[in-house]
Simulated scan of single mutants.
Amino acid sequence: MSITISFIYLSENFKGEFLNPASDLFGFEICRKELWGHKILKDLGCKVIPALNEKDLFIVNEELEAAYEDCLIILQNISEISSVTNYSEIFIEIRVNNLLKFVETALKNKNDLGINIS
């Protein structure tokens, strides 16, 4: 089973036909614990993504900024995260960039969009 990313529509009037990120994949179910919930992410300062270890994420409002920061932290420390978790840098980079595309779109439409990772 895979972890996927999707938009949460916060406004009934929002027209989101243009919303079509290339990929909605965020890894396999086991990544919740082995990668996104790994202690290294918390140690590096990630605040939102590590909670995926415990539950599905519903990211709205100011949490979008925190998710964006988490993505940047992961990309800046990808070698260290890869060596500790045994997931390849490419695997991590692809998934984080998938999330980053969703987050950037949601930030531009903050009153209308949120993100679900489940």
Rank of each mutant, 00 (worst) to 15 (best):
G37P: 10
G27V: 08
D112P: 00
K108I: 00
Y68M: 08
L75Q: 07
W36S: 03
I92F: 01
I3E: 04
N13K: 14
L64Y: 06
C71E: 02
I74V: 09
T85M: 06
I117K: 09
F18S: 05
S82H: 05
L57A: 08
G27E: 09
E62S: 10
K39C: 05
E12V: 12
I40K: 01
D70S: 03
E104N: 13
S11N: 15
S82W: 05
N13G: 08
N116Y: 13
I90T: 12
Q76K: 15
F7I: 04
C31G: 07
E29G: 11
N13F: 15
N98Q: 06
H38E: 13
F91L: 06
L72D: 12
N97W: 05
E29W: 10
F7N: 02
F28V: 13
G37W: 09
N53P: 07
N109A: 03
N20V: 04
C31L: 10
L113V: 02
S83H: 13
E65M: 06
L57C: 08
L113S: 01
A66D: 15
V84S: 07
V96C: 05
L72P: 00
A66L: 15
S83G: 09
E63G: 05
I73M: 08
T105H: 14
H38C: 03
S118Q: 11
L25Q: 13
I59L: 06
F102Q: 01
E80H: 08
E34W: 08
E69L: 10
L75K: 11
K55V: 12
E12N: 15
I117C: 05
E80P: 01
Y68R: 14
P50E: 06
R32C: 10
N13I: 14
L35H: 04
K47N: 08
F102P: 03
L25K: 13
A22V: 14
F58R: 14
K47Y: 01
S88T: 11
I115L: 06
V48Y: 04
E93L: 07
E63H: 11
I115D: 01
V48A: 09
L57I: 06
I40E: 04
E80Q: 10
V96H: 03
C71P: 03
L35R: 04
N111P: 00
N109Q: 06
K39G: 05
L19H: 02
E62K: 10
R95K: 15
I59Y: 11
C71F: 03
K33R: 12
G114K: 02
V60F: 12
D112M: 07
E63K: 15
Y87C: 07
A67S: 15
L64D: 07
N109I: 02
G16D: 02
L44F: 02
E34I: 11
A22T: 14
